[in-house]
């Protein structure tokens, strides 16, 4: 066991303070009585009440959740297919182009992706609204899903699949019964990643949304452009809370599963 030197302790403390203090301050000030966000005037939850009465925000939240559920589900299906093609597909015509199209959107500036998709939608005469945002979000999040899933596919033991095929499974059944259960944790975290990316996206949604549909980030952005507001602090606190609970419980579940898997493997090894 190594002991941490004072240097390492300092950099961890300062680093995590830097990462978390801004959000802690934001959360504290969301309970501020005063309209002036920088002056502390006592504890109050009134901004949460205001928020819940604000229909524009509630509508936007509903659109955002709809878009996120749809796009992350499509992205997970397409991204898992793409990962399978990349890792198991062997050689096919245009493979380099394909893998380029998977990796490029990960680093593409959002303004370019947004602009190009908007011009496509206008070019083919598709009315902008929920559908166009879903198409746009599916496209960039499927690439994230495919990166997450393909890293899992690369590390898993291919002979399991081959055994299933040898024992008479069709290749689809082998995928459904052997491969999918093994890569399931990666598929689930891919879905979660796609979901949060969609919840989070401002730039691409602004280009592809049009006047008919407004998502929460678009709403937040137009509100905060004018300055800090206690209502937005309250909204941010709720969003941070949901994400924190989600991430912590997901990691606890996966930890429990991996412990159980370890125990089962040990038991199997002892039995053998």
């Amino acid at each position: 066991m190594m002991r941490l030197s004072w240097f390492n302790v300092t950099s961890l403390t300062l680093g995590f303070a830097f990462l978390y203090l801004p959000m802690v301050i934001l959360i504290i000030y969301s309970f501020n009585e005063s309209k002036l966000v920088t002056v502390w005037a006592g504890f109050s939850t009134k901004w949460y009440g205001e928020l819940l009465r604000n229909e524009a925000f509630l509508d936007a939240a509903w659109v955002t959740i709809k878009v996120a559920v749809l796009s992350s589900t499509f992205a997970t299906v397409l991204g898992t297919m793409a990962a399978y093609v990349l890792v198991r597909g062997g050689r096919f015509l245009g493979r380099t182009v394909f893998s380029g199209m998977i990796y490029a959107p990960l680093v593409m500036p959002e303004v370019i992706t947004g602009l190009s998709l908007l011009l496509l939608f206008i070019g083919i005469g598709l009315d902008r609204g929920v559908i166009t945002i879903v198409l746009a979000h599916t496209t960039f999040s499927m690439c994230y899903v495919s990166v997450v899933v393909s890293s899992r596919l690369m590390t898993f033991d291919r002979s399991l699949e081959e055994a299933a095929l040898d024992l008479g499974c069709s290749s689809f059944d082998a995928f459904r019964l052997v491969t999918l259960p093994i890569i399931a944790p990666a598929v689930i975290s891919g879905w979660l990643l796609a979901f949060t990316l969609s919840l989070d996206d401002l730039v691409i949604a602004s280009f592809t949304a049009g006047p008919a549909a407004t998502t929460l980030p678009i709403k937040i952005f137009s509100a905060v452009r004018l300055g800090v507001s206690p209502e937005i602090n309250a909204l941010s606190t709720i969003m941070i809370g949901i994400v924190t609970i989600g991430v912590i419980s997901a990691s606890l579940v996966s930890k429990r599963n991996s412990l159980r898997q370890q125990r089962e493997e040990q038991a199997a090894a002892r039995a053998a």
Binding site: Y20, P217, M239, T244
Partner: peptide
């Protein structure tokens, strides 16, 4: 997990936090 957690939190909110 402590490093990844902010990454899951809204980018817009993390930028906004600095405005205050």
């Amino acid at each position: 997990m402590l490093v990844i957690l902010p990454f899951w939190t809204s980018f817009l909110i993390r930028v906004y936090a600095w405005m205050g």
